[in-house]
């Protein structure tokens, strides 16, 4: 079974761009408007899940193979920890907002403001998106083994 009908494939092919763009917008503007890394990450993951449901698992695995997703997951967690440790090195305490206090104060209500908060949002978004994508990929990988077991 390779995905759904042609109607679903074409529609999801158009919609996937909008969903991905919306997820990136939610992550980038998380410090100004409602949203943030958690919500945006889940939206990015749901974009990939839509593709998986419409086109089948193999199509998604060609675009974002499982080892790459696993590495991106680790990169997201590592980036968040590195931001925290940079606060320790440059600002004097763990998780301090060193960019806002020392180097780049920015102006309130602009995109470039709030120091490390947008960077942390990016790291959290990457981590949440890839880990939720990994869970659903692993859950869907398990299906053929189940049906094979039942027939025996």
């Amino acid at each position: 079974m390779k995905g759904m009908t042609i109607i679903v494939k074409i529609i999801s092919g158009w919609v996937k761009v909008l969903i991905f763009l919306f997820g990136i917008y939610i992550i980038l503007f998380g410090h100004l408007t409602p949203g943030g890394g958690f919500a945006g990450g889940v939206i990015l993951a749901s974009c990939y899940v839509l593709l998986m449901l419409a086109f089948g698992r193999e199509f998604v695995e060609e675009n974002l193979p499982l080892p790459l997703a696993s590495k991106l997951d680790c990169v997201g967690a590592l980036a968040f920890a590195v931001i925290a440790i940079l606060g320790l090195v440059l600002g004097g305490s763990f998780f301090i907002n060193f960019l806002y206090q020392k180097y780049l104060p920015g102006e309130a209500l602009n995109l470039i403001s709030a120091g490390t908060i947008p960077l942390s949002n990016l790291a959290i978004g990457l981590k949440v998106a890839t880990s939720l994508f990994l869970v659903i990929l692993v859950l869907s990988m398990f299906r053929p083994d189940m049906s094979g077991d039942k027939k025996e």
Partner: peptide
């Protein structure tokens, strides 16, 4: 004034109480 983020929830979650978020990332992992 202290974080520069207009979304106060984001300022709490990623600046004042960022340890919570680090723990959340660990639990999710």
């Amino acid at each position: 004034r202290k974080t520069g983020a207009a979304n106060l929830v984001a300022s709490v979650i990623l600046d004042f109480r960022a340890y919570d978020t680090l723990g959340e990332a660990t639990v999710l992992f």
